[in-house]
């Protein structure tokens, strides 16, 4: 797969069809992968592909990265789950489908965090999203690299995140409140969750608006709660459960629980799952005249 990927990248750069290939390369010790930006066909051999390729590189397609956008048309190495975010970016008019070349990778799962890797991909080191993945064969791509995966996800989503949500749902309101207050109390306001997220692409985040200061920037319980709740709300109907925020969080806040819960709420209310169809707008940004609720009419 790696060879085909490198060949494809080389072709794209040589023909001038793209100016940069955003993919994965090795770190110095060759123990972990790290994002690389290949602009010269001769460097295409730096690209790697393995279960350590956990990052969702679609973040580099957003306007947060003006220098990368200035390079010219990008090609991006993307797993099915990463492509979901690209789909959302297209539906939200961040760029057009033809503005990006998607090199879709068939995928048998990644490790939740690279530290867990001992040379073998075992189910217990894979994140919940991989166990329920219905896009192991990329659903939107210019090219697909890899053998077709025959994996079928379980009918009812299963795994640690779903179990925890179920357990939380069964608890009383006060109990849930104290659970989240405790989890959010660790927040250090580093904003890694926001920065790693390709759907958090606002050039000026609400926490940075200080006239008035909507969200208190202090890492005290009040500031932490308002930040984490606001971010969750801003991702409703958009988040694809790629899990990058939880992976990036240096203090292990279970953000996947918040985001997957929101996904379930949107699914129940609008029968919508984000990230599958680049032609359907997410429910929170559209209005339909035949909306079943009449409060807005």
């Amino acid at each position: 797969m790696e060879e085909i990927l490198r060949k494809k990248a080389k072709e794209l750069l040589e023909s001038g069809e793209v100016k940069v290939v955003i993919g994965y390369g090795w770190n110095r010790q060759r123990t972990k992968t790290t994002p690389v930006f290949i602009t010269d066909a001769a460097d295409a051999d730096r690209l790697v592909w393995n279960p350590l390729c956990v990052n969702n590189l679609s973040v580099y397609l957003t306007r947060k990265f003006k220098d990368i956008q200035a390079m010219g048309k990008p090609a991006i190495v993307a797993k099915g789950c990463d492509i979901k975010n690209i789909v959302v970016l297209i539906t939200e008019a961040q760029f057009k489908r033809e503005d990006v070349c998607i090199i879709g990778m068939t995928c048998e799962g990644v490790v939740y965090r690279q530290e867990l890797w001992k040379g073998e991909l075992k189910p217990e080191i894979m994140p919940t999203k991989c166990h329920n993945c219905d896009v192991r064969n990329p659903h939107l791509a210019d090219f697909v690299v890899g053998e077709k995966s025959s994996f079928t996800p379980p009918e009812t989503p299963a795994g640690m995140v779903f179990d925890k949500i179920k357990a939380l749902d069964s608890r009383g309101q006060a109990d849930k409140w104290s659970f989240w207050i405790n989890e959010f109390s660790r927040c250090i306001k580093c904003y890694a969750c926001r920065q790693v997220c390709s759907l958090c692409y606002c050039e000026r985040c609400i926490t940075e608006k200080n006239m008035p200061q909507w969200i208190e920037t202090s890492a005290h319980p009040r500031g932490n709660l308002s930040w984490n709740l606001t971010r969750a709300m801003h991702l409703v109907g958009r988040c694809t459960f790629c899990g990058e925020c939880e992976r990036a969080c240096p203090v292990n806040i279970p953000l996947n629980l918040v985001n997957q819960k929101m996904i379930q709420v949107v699914k129940d209310a609008f029968d919508f799952r984000s990230g599958y169809d680049e032609k359907t707008h997410p429910p929170m940004i559209v209005f339909s005249p035949d909306d079943k609720d009449d409060f807005i009419k």
Binding site: T34, P35, V36, I68, Y191, A192, R194, Q195, V196, A248
Partner: peptide, 9 residues
């Protein structure tokens, strides 16, 4: 350092 996402971690 192009890959830096600009968090404060």
């Amino acid at each position: 350092t192009r890959k830096c996402i600009g968090c404060g971690a």
